[in-house]
Simulated assay, not measured.
Amino acid sequence: MSFLFPETPAAAFDEFLAATAPADRGRPTWTPDDGPMPALYLSHGAPPLFDDPHWIGQLFAWSQALPKPTAVLIVSAHWESAPLALSAPEAGTPLVYDFGGFARRYYEMTYATPDASALARRVAALMPATEPVHASARRGLDHGAWVPLKVMYPWADVPVLQLSMPTHDPARLVELGRRLRPLREEGVLLVGSGFMTHGLPFMTREMVEFNAVPAWSSEFDAWVAEALATGDLDTLADFRRAPGMPYAHPTVEHFTPLFVTLGAATDPTAAPTTVIDDFQIGMAKRSLQVA
């Protein structure tokens, strides 16, 4: 698959910036007349996303189908920290390049978003006294946040703040999403960022190169899709015993952001809208939104 071994790193992203991304310039920002913003769970990818024109197109089309948010609050698989913490809200906070073995180009990418201090204050105000939010002075956006958002909002003109994931307990994460739900009525896009299957240790080079989908990946993805369609949160919460486990998630941090998204829904048991449901390098990219 050419996007895994590009002659020119991020060439697909460069073409996207020149040919497609200008459609996002000047789009009006959300107003109350648009109604609450949805909450998303997205499979976020890593630097190879910038070499995959198909995935770039999927994410950008998704963002264009939504009102442009007043801000983005994102919970990523790559920041597990308790107690709750927020990334530094200042404009242009440096990124976290939490990956290795890629071309230099990806470590030179920037995403200088506007000041998000107002959102930081709102998030802190929504949390109970028993769970205060620590404000980080230096922590920037990790690749679970800036990689997909750099495609969805390529001009970095939307304030972005990252919230740490303090637990993998589904009930607690659903409750966290519920607390954050009022932000949707203020035009804030809430995002849980993970990957629907993430069994990287079990992928062979041949699987990766030819996008061969192993049974553990397709079976876990189908199980999730069925549980979501029926609003069965109890089944989803028992994900450690799902088909394909533990290969689909040898560690669970790429799946559990889903529960923050579901908690932020007006009705967490309502079936979400699946926006992306294909595979990259054998892993399920299933991504969805809830109202």
Results as ranks from 00 to 15, higher is better:
E7K: 14
A10I: 03
F13T: 01
D14A: 13
E15R: 15
A18I: 08
G26L: 07
R27E: 04
R27D: 00
P28R: 11
W30M: 05
T31I: 11
T31R: 06
M37L: 01
A39N: 06
L42E: 01
L42K: 00
H44T: 06
H44R: 06
H44L: 01
L49D: 07
P53K: 07
H54M: 03
H54S: 12
W55P: 00
I56W: 00
L59S: 07
K68A: 08
V72E: 02
S81Y: 15
A85V: 04
A85N: 02
A85P: 01
L86D: 04
A88T: 07
A91Q: 14
V96K: 07
D98A: 05
F102V: 14
Y106T: 11
Y107L: 09
P114D: 12
A116H: 03
A120M: 08
R122S: 11
V123T: 00
V123A: 01
P132L: 13
P132V: 10
H134N: 12
H134T: 15
H134W: 01
A137Y: 01
R138F: 12
G140F: 00
L141E: 07
V147D: 01
L149E: 00
V151A: 04
W155F: 10
V158P: 04
V158T: 02
V160M: 02
L161M: 08
P166N: 09
P166H: 07
H168K: 12
H168D: 15
V174F: 03
V174W: 00
L180N: 10
P182G: 12
R184P: 11
E185N: 07
E185H: 14
L190K: 04
V191A: 04
G199K: 12
L200M: 09
P201R: 15
T204V: 05
R205N: 03
M207Y: 08
P214T: 13
P214F: 11
A215N: 08
S218D: 03
E219H: 13
A222R: 08
A225D: 14
A227M: 02
L228F: 08
L233S: 07
T235N: 07
A237C: 11
D238F: 02
R241N: 11
P243A: 02
P243T: 09
G244F: 05
P246H: 09
A248K: 10
H249E: 12
P250Y: 12
V252N: 14
H254N: 00
H254V: 06
T261K: 08
T261P: 13
T274E: 11
I276Q: 13
G282P: 05
G282D: 03
R286A: 03
R286I: 00
V290K: 10
V290M: 08
